[in-house]
Measured scan of single mutants.
Amino acid sequence: TEIRININGVTIHVRDASEELKKLIEHLLRLGADEKEIREVLHRWEK
């Protein structure tokens, strides 16, 4: 699944996002995570 996240005008594009990762990101956004925090989570997730 491919997702695009727009945070304050900055688009983060994620290829091959699992449903689990998608739910995690949606949850973090609801909690008010910023772009830097989302990128950090994505970076750690890929490892």
Rank of each mutant, 00 (worst) to 15 (best):
T1E: 12
T1L: 14
T1D: 11
T1S: 11
T1C: 05
I3E: 05
I3T: 05
I3L: 09
R4W: 06
R4P: 08
R4I: 13
R4A: 14
I5G: 01
I5L: 06
N6P: 07
I7V: 13
G9L: 06
G9R: 03
G9F: 01
V10M: 07
V10R: 08
V10C: 05
V10L: 12
T11R: 07
I12V: 06
I12Y: 00
I12D: 02
H13E: 09
H13D: 08
H13S: 13
V14R: 01
V14L: 09
V14G: 04
V14F: 09
R15C: 03
R15E: 09
D16N: 13
D16G: 15
A17F: 06
A17H: 05
A17R: 03
S18C: 04
S18K: 07
S18L: 04
E19M: 08
E20C: 06
E20F: 05
E20Y: 04
E20K: 09
E20H: 04
L21I: 07
L21N: 00
L21G: 01
L21A: 02
K22M: 15
K22E: 11
K22G: 08
K23Q: 15
K23V: 14
K23N: 14
K23F: 10
L24C: 02
L24A: 12
L24F: 13
I25L: 14
E26P: 00
E26C: 04
H27Q: 11
H27V: 07
H27I: 07
H27W: 06
H27F: 06
L29S: 05
L29F: 03
R30N: 11
R30A: 14
R30K: 14
L31Q: 14
G32T: 01
G32L: 02
G32D: 03
A33C: 07
A33Q: 03
A33L: 10
D34V: 05
D34T: 15
D34Y: 03
D34P: 09
E35D: 14
E35I: 10
K36Q: 12
E37P: 00
E37V: 13
I38A: 00
I38L: 08
I38W: 03
I38T: 01
R39Y: 08
R39H: 15
R39L: 13
V41S: 07
L42C: 01
L42F: 01
L42V: 14
L42Q: 00
L42E: 01
L42S: 01
L42G: 00
L42K: 01
H43D: 12
H43C: 08
H43P: 03
H43S: 09
R44D: 15
R44P: 03
R44L: 15
R44I: 14
W45I: 10
W45C: 15
W45E: 06
W45Q: 06
E46W: 02
K47H: 15
K47W: 02
K47A: 14
K47Y: 02
